[in-house]
Amino acid sequence: MNLTEEEIRNIALKAINELGNKANADTVKAVVEKAVSAIDENVKLPSGNLKKTSGRVILTSFGMNHPGIVAKVTTALSNAKCDIRDMSQKIMDEFYTMIIIIDISNSPLELSEIQNELTKVADELKIKIYLQHEDLFRHMHRV
């Protein structure tokens, strides 16, 4: 887990207050462990699983059009338990572009793992697939 400087300082102060002159290696260890686990619970309880990237991700894909692209991409997303929230695609001559907005909050995989899965699909179909967190687009195009 990741403690901030502030938290470390508070734990140290707490240990000093509780133990004073009686401190030895074991008692300090016990106090610190207690304080750390308290913080751990505080952090974890309200926000659920912290490790997982939350929220929406924008998938952009383009390349030469051929049958089966949408099927393969959506199958990969479905295997990763990603929820498709919106989807649009256009064909320009022999090229296609596709944009899918997905929600990965219920996926057991991390964003980087999903990216790896889709890179395999992209290589197989000889197309480009990019996955970027939605925040990037929100910051660049919305005030």
Binding site: I58, T60, D86, S88, K90, T97, I99, I101, K128, Y130, Q132, L136, F137, M140, H141
Partner: peptide, 17 residues
């Protein structure tokens, strides 16, 4: 869709091209 098609492509163009 909350974002325009063009907006998304513009970002992709900036980062990739």
């Amino acid at each position: 869709m909350p974002y325009q098609f063009e907006e998304i492509l513009e970002t992709i163009k900036m980062t990739e091209i």
